[in-house]
Design a binder for these strands. Structure first.
Lengths: 335, 335
DNA sequence: CTGAAAGCGCTAACAT
DNA sequence: ATGTTAGCGCTTTCAG
């Protein structure tokens, strides 16, 4: 293995100069730098990250904590993170925490146990107090994306506002009996988004002067299947029926669309459906939705983190943007 | 920061003993070990991964290369990998290579440049010769999952066989005009699976004594949208129509289902549809499919790799399993 | 701008 | 079973 000494020897300089020339820290004359870079190149020299980290205390590695790898939102945020971190020469260490408490525990230990990262991004994980403490105790920059954590710097949409917007869209169209399909408590435990969206829904309903009696709620699990079954229950239950459905995610909403179709209820004539996400499938289904931009959220979080690492205080945090996209699944109710 | 010397001092032993007690390498009396572990615990000591790696040459970190993060197959494989690696105390460093050649280049450099991993898992990435060389030149264990690479140890289903099986299912039911929806060349460049599946399709067709003239082909991109549009073209083209569609992925097949529905073609009466994957949505749609098990593929690959690292030669490689699951989207053609 | 040299915190021979 | 000690390969003062 070619080491820094080999390069130093071949280039006729000291190891310190090689280090400076290659890392860009400290001053080296242009000529020397060039020579060093060239010999390093020709010798096939590459720094040893462990030696470098040990000596400098920097790892050029950031840890990313995600609860799911196979859900659209999470994998998209991860892509965004990855795109900027890779470009800036940082590695990503992935910590996939699951419901399994033991495994979860292990992950948090692992942070301490290995001090392997310069910073951490937590993607929509609801951390309990101890976990949060453990993380903050690491004394490295941490940022949360997509799930508010009161004690962490957070980049996320305002779920309450987004849900209000979606509900108000339905209300503005004239719907008076609206339904919300969220997620059940089990799901909420790890990820408080559904209940915040519920809050936004209820607020909008109340502010419109409607009674919550007219605002049915069903719960699903953020999947197409879940939305489908919830909607079947919703539309299949005897009694006055909701004319507008607000689903907590686009996948849920797509499930609702499929269920309505199977029940012979036309959309939007028989029932209007709106989701949240701006999922890649939403356009395909003509789904009205409040789009958020997880890729950008990930990218922005990563950038903010790097800015922090590099001392630049980072631009003032603005909440993540979202936008109502009206397509063909919502319309005024028939009467 | 508490170091190994602090622990050694407090426990009244040498640093070597602390290292042995904590790492499990070498012999330490049970009593000493206990004492060391206890003091380490109480002091809040954690090893420095860089120091440890530098001294031992081991990183307890494996690199995972994936081309996509937001596609079912990839994220599921990744989950599988993550579950076993985490359990065994290994970290995973994620390398998301994209189409962007520059970024891609950078990733490969990064491997050399940082020598940060003990092993590598390549998930369904088609690597060119230089890239493969670079990887094998690292001289660490490498395993490919989900995409055959002739010069790498590979864990994957036999795509040709799987495609044959799917096609033969259609043929066995009596279909004589069958169609294949694969993926176009651009997609194939990075990921040769579609063309292997096409090969299996064609083989089955020929072996059934049919002419390839009766075997239409369309291409999509492994997504629901893609499958939808391809199917619309397929079923909307004048002339004799295929009665059975073999889609290269479940998502493609689901798109086909939706397209058929929109065209008023009943499934399976008007057209049969079969996919490949065993995607979580396939059951929901009643889709007949050849299931593969990406989570298990990831897990097995990770285990094989670890076995390699630990000197255990690893069980003989058996190809990844798959299974035909007949549901309600395939039936004998009407006549 | 460059060099000398002291570590960074741990592991693994080698002794005992 | 445990201690001694020489590195692992780099970064970073401190001098010059």
């Amino acid at each position: 293995m070619v080491s820094i000494d080999d390069v130093a020897g071949a280039a006729g300089v000291s190891t310190a100069t090689v280090s400076r020339a290659l890392s860009g820290r400290g001053h080296v004359s242009a000529a020397t730098r060039e020579r060093v870079v060239a010999t390093a190149q020709s010798l096939g020299y590459v720094v040893s990250s462990s030696a470098s980290s040990l000596a400098s205390g920097r790892t050029r590695n950031v840890g990313v904590i995600v609860p799911f790898l196979d859900r659209w939102f999470f994998s998209t945020v991860l892509s965004g993170i990855s795109s900027v971190l890779t470009r800036r020469g940082f590695d990503i260490t992935l910590y996939n925490i699951t419901a399994d408490a033991d495994a979860r525990q292990k992950v948090f230990e692992s942070f301490r146990q290995r001090r392997r990262v310069d910073a951490i991004i937590a993607v929509a994980v609801e951390l309990d107090e101890r976990e949060t403490e453990r993380l903050t105790g690491l004394d490295i920059p941490i940022i949360a994306v997509g799930g508010r954590n009161p004690s962490l710097r957070t980049l996320a949409i305002d779920d309450v506002a987004v849900a209000r917007l979606a509900t108000e869209h339905l209300l503005t169209l004239g719907h008076r009996r609206v339904a919300y399909i969220g997620a059940d408590a089990a799901y909420d435990l790890d990820f408080h988004v559904p209940s915040r969206r519920q809050e936004g829904f209820e607020t909008a309903v109340r502010e419109a002067g409607l009674s919550l009696e007219d605002a049915v709620q069903e719960s699903a699990d953020f999947t197409i299947q879940g939305g489908y079954h919830a909607t079947k229950r919703l539309l299949g239950t005897p009694g006055p029926r909701a004319t507008g459905i607000f689903a907590a995610s686009d996948e849920t909403a797509i499930g609702a669309l499929l269920a309505a179709r199977d029940l012979g209820v036309a959309v939007p004539q028989g029932v209007s459906v709106i989701g949240i996400d701006g999922h890649e499938l939403s356009e395909f289904f003509g789904l009205t939705t409040v789009a958020q931009y997880p890729f950008e959220q990930g990218a922005r979080a990563a950038e903010a983190l790097l800015a922090g690492l590099e001392g630049t205080p980072g631009a003032e945090e603005t909440p993540a943007p979202y936008r109502l996209i009206v397509r063909s699944t919502t319309a005024a109710p028939l009467r």
